[in-house]
Design a protein around this nucleic acid. Structure first.
Length: 899
RNA sequence: GGGCUUGUAGCUCAGAUGGUUAGAGUGCACGCCUGAUAAGCGUGAGGUCCCUGGUUCAAUUCCAGGCAGGCCCA
């Protein structure tokens, strides 16, 4: 009997599989998409410019997050009617690849050309791997034509940018201290330094001072200065104090000493002296005073610097700009010389200790200080000190010739690069807004940009020098010739051909008239390369999206170079995201976290779930990643997928002729209106780059309005009303509206699942879901639906909640098993009198009977829920007064019609 | 140490120009259904809104200082 009845019920039916099977399904779609030809479009272009990742390993979760965010943005913009231009890039030069190649024993690192070819092969290998890995995530991009910083055309662009900076007067040759290994006679990058303990001679030295503001004494006055590198004293050009520290002037009986107040106790104890404090000065009071060098006949002016501390020493430091980064910056600020009397092998070149190795000179200088009564105290200390990673010898800081971009030199337009950069910030949209504050502070403080490196895997600094007089030939013609050579042969040409082969034959030194030139063998800072990527397109990018570390990195290098060359920023908007951290909010360590490799996530969960996780979290802050969170993403994903499957199943047999929204049943009108409202809000979320809000909205809509309220209610009509009845046509029309809206909302995120589901939709208008655009705002929201939403539905659902709370009590008391077995009496207040004629009480509440009355003495609705005595219809399972012969009147009628 | 930044239910997120009982989804517990079934529905429990101090009639919200994270510097 029940089987026969079941045959008359229209249950959902679809071939859209119950199980996602993403691991199999996703690659099938990738293959299919790859086969499709590129579509032409004259829609307005939207260009998201890709910040190039570094190809020296497989992609990690951070890469995945970055590219998925970009992809969701691009795809959603596409659905807003744009033609997307997304060219992925890779930043292929640089030290990490050099060092990884050097570690390979098979490589001959002595030959630059061979070495560079090895680096090239290494980079290309990882570009290919990363590309495959990104593609597997469903990232849509111009994968066939990525930009690589090693591509000859790109390299030529970079050479051109350098030339234009020269023309703008921004490039200069100067000196800057860098780590230098005196044993290997080479510059070392930070990454090539390892810290080890080292024994140093420390000295506390007197720097005599003839006058001190507000202090009068007949005794000799001196500033006491502590240093662990006495060998740098010959290169001293001044002293630095902290402007806000207090300095005491101490009378020791035979002399007067100036040191930081907070250091005096420790110092007087160490030295066994006592003294009386004559005065206290702030560091800023000392600024501008001039002391004398302890043994050279030269002044030692006093400057202020924030890096000075009173944690050790005397609170006064000696400044040798040729031998320290801090020193260098203070020196730059005050315009002090970069004195650097040390040669390649670490030997002093001038003065009494000329020819002496620096670490041997230190004790000699100490002895000299002692002999001349300039030494206050001396000791031997053990401390962590930088050592060379290759030979493990201690390294020194040594100023070497470098190329710079001037931040504060006016360009032909009269503005400095710094000023232009600061001004440009407000013309750029920063998401989140504090990105502007962040980069602003960095731009304000940054020193001139040192763009040269003493390495081999990079684009050479395109500079030649006159062999006779050493003058660089920085002319447009020379730059053009180098561009041509690089574009034709790649930048390795610099290591293969002589200057004469590269330059035009007529090149003549402007200074001395010589025609013999030699190449400068430095390479460019990789940030200069990636920062030149604006050259790929004549227009600024609409948007860039990178981690917040790029406020110092790429955003800044790109901004500075584009402003110098184009006088406009390279991007209109900058969105930043945070970093991936573990369950405790701590940064990811390489030792653990194999569960967080994108590859494994894709394998065990699927790319759509990884994408859903990315989309569901607020990426402007750091985001946590763990299996638990992926499981949660999977749950939400399945909810959405199931909902879509239910829609598809119940659209089975639908003609596709959708009933217009106003002609639908009120409940249908409401859910279509709701779905449209959510759709419109989701589109705005996408547009405002708040993807996680779109996801929250979507999930809450699916679980709340759709699943709990609408779909549960509409099942009776779908399953039990006559197949072609108007009521069922309305229901199916509604499901079609819902599907159309829902599939669009998820398409930018669940790129595979949306495409897969769309193929099972019988009324699709495009072959791919990814060719669809969003619907116009309010496309399916009528004035009537809006009015009903305002006046009816909130009250109805609030009453539903009341009814269920009351019904739950009956169920707990075992009076009923199901809510279907109840009848409900609703007493409405005057204000809700219009709900008395509401026609859908029964299907909304899913109970047997509903009666409504109005009572002006109540202020809120009152409900009474009681068991009903009706029999259950064996077909529709509702309890109904008309049940006879096991089915209700409606079902009896339907069965007649069907047969 | 400095610049920027984060801290609201177990989790992901909302929210309040300062004002009743701080919300949603998910997870969890209990129950229902077995015609969305490796699904669906209902009810419920869950919060010192990081801490301390200040301003205020009133602070999770504003201010200051801490604590714990993150990025970038030093």
């Amino acid at each position: 009997m029940s089987d026969r009845l079941k045959d008359t019920v229209q249950l959902p039916q679809t071939d859209f599989p119950a199980r996602a099977g993403l691991a199999d399904m996703e690659p099938r779609w990738l293959a299919q998409w790859a086969d499709q030809p590129q579509k032409k479009s004259d829609a307005p272009r939207y260009r998201l410019h890709d910040g190039p990742p570094y190809p020296n390993g497989d992609i990690h979760a951070g890469h995945a997050l970055n590219k998925v965010v970009k992809d969701v943005v691009c795809r959603s913009r596409h659905m807003m009617g744009h033609r997307i231009d997304f060219q992925p890039g890779w930043d292929c030069h640089g030290l990490p690849i050099e060092t990884q190649v050097i570690k390979k024993k098979s490589v001959d690192a002595s030959d630059s050309v061979v070495f560079r070819n090895q680096c090239q092969a290494f980079a290309q290998d990882y570009v290919a791997r990363q590309r495959t890995e990104f593609q597997r995530l469903g990232i849509e991009a111009n994968w066939d034509q990525p930009y690589l910083t090693t591509h000859p055309d790109y390299e030529a662009h970079v050479v051109s940018v350098f030339g234009q900076l020269v023309d703008a007067g921004l490039v200069y040759h100067g000196r800057k201290p860098i780590h230098w290994c005196t044993c290997c006679k080479t510059a070392l990058a930070e990454a090539e330094i390892e810290y080890d303990t080292h024994q140093s001679v420390s000295v506390t030295v007197r720097f005599p001072l003839s006058e001190l503001p507000g202090v009068s004494t007949d005794l000799p006055v001196s500033l006491w200065v502590w240093t662990t590198t006495p060998w740098t004293l010959p290169a001293n050009v001044g002293l630095a104090v902290h402007p806000n520290l207090e300095y005491g002037v101490f009378d020791l009986g035979t002399e007067v000493a100036v040191v930081a107040n907070t250091r005096w106790a420790a110092l007087s104890e160490t030295l066994g002296v006592s003294g009386q404090c004559l005065a206290t000065l702030y560091g800023r009071d000392l600024e501008g005073c001039v002391a004398s060098h302890p043994f050279l006949d030269q002044p030692a002016p006093i400057g202020g610097a924030d890096f000075v501390t009173d944690s050790d020493g005397t609170g006064i430091v000696h400044i040798a700009p040729g031998h320290g980064v801090d020193d260098y910056q203070v020196g730059q600020y005050y315009g002090w010389d970069v004195v650097m009397p040390v040669d390649d092998s670490g030997c002093l070149t001038q003065g009494d200790w000329a020819g002496q190795f620096v670490f041997k000179a230190s004790p000699q200088i100490r002895d000299h200080l002692n002999a001349t009564h300039r030494l206050v105290h001396s000791a031997t200390i053990q401390h962590a000190y930088p050592h060379c990673w290759r030979c493990h010898n201690p390294v020194i800081f040594r100023a070497t010739p470098q190329w710079f971009i001037a931040m504060d030199t006016p360009m032909p337009n009269g503005k400095t690069l710094r000023a232009m950069a600061m001004e440009s910030l407000s013309s750029i949209q920063w998401v989140p807004e504090w990105g502007k504050t962040r980069i602003q502070a960095m731009l304000e403080q940054r020193p001139d940009w040192c763009i040269s490196r003493q390495r081999r895997w990079g684009i050479p600094i395109p500079v030649v020098r006159c062999q006779s007089c050493g003058e660089p030939a920085l002319t447009p013609a020379v730059n053009a010739a180098i561009q041509t050579a690089v574009r034709t042969h790649g930048s390795t040409v610099w290591f293969e051909q002589s200057a004469a082969e590269i330059l035009p034959a007529t090149t003549t030194c402007a200074a001395c008239g010589s025609q013999a030139f030699e190449k400068v063998m430095d390479i460019l800072d990789v940030w200069f390369e990636s920062g030149s990527s604006f050259m790929l397109d004549p227009e600024p990018a609409d948007l860039v999206i990178e981690g917040t570390d790029q406020h110092r990195g790429w955003f800044q290098s790109a901004l500075l170079l584009a402003l110098a060359v184009r006088k406009e920023p390279p991007f209109k908007a900058v969105m930043t995201h945070g970093f991936i951290v573990d369950e405790q909010g701590k940064k990811m360590s390489k030792s653990k976290g194999n569960a967080t490799k994108p590859e494994q996530i894709v394998q065990s969960y699927g790319a759509d779930i990884l994408r859903w996780w990315v989309a569901s979290v607020d990426v402007k802050d750091d985001v946590q990643l763990s299996p638990q969170l992926l499981d949660q993403a999977k749950q939400a994903f399945l909810k959405i997928r199931n909902t879509i499957r239910f829609l598809l199943g119940n659209l089975n047999g639908f003609s596709g002729d959708r009933v217009s929204v106003d002609a639908l049943a009120p409940l249908d009108r409401w859910i279509v209106h709701r779905a449209q409202t959510v759709h419109d809000a989701v589109v705005l979320d996408y547009e405002g780059l708040a993807i996680h809000r779109a996801v929250q909205r979507l999930v809450q809509f699916c679980s709340g309005d759709l699943s709990a309220h609408y779909l549960d209610s509409v099942k009776d009509r779908l399953y039990c009303d006559a197949p072609q009845s108007e009521s069922r046509q309305c229901a199916q029309s509604t499901l079609a509206y819902l599907f159309e809206l829902l599939i669009r909302m998820i398409a930018p995120i669940l790129v595979f699942t949306a495409e897969d589901a769309y193929q099972y939709y019988a009324f699709k208008t495009n072959s791919s879901v990814h060719d669809l655009t969003f619907l116009d705002p309010g496309a399916h929201s009528t004035a009537l639906a809006q009015q009903e939403a305002d006046t009816t539905w909130a009250a109805v659902f609030s009453i539903k909640e009341q009814v269920y709370q009351a019904a739950e009590v009956l169920r707990q008391n075992k009076v009923i098993k199901q809510f279907l077995q109840t009848q409900v009496a609703i007493t409405l207040p005057e204000s809700l009198a219009h709900l008395q004629t509401f026609t859908e009480w029964r299907s909304v509440l899913l109970v047997a009977e509903v009666t409504c009355s109005v009572d002006e003495t109540v202020t809120d609705p009152v409900v009474s829920v009681t068991p009903v005595a009706h029999k259950k219809c064996d077909r529709c399972w509702r309890y109904d007064a008309t049940v006879s012969d096991q089915v209700c009147a409606r079902c009896a009628h339907v069965m007649e019609v069907v047969q």
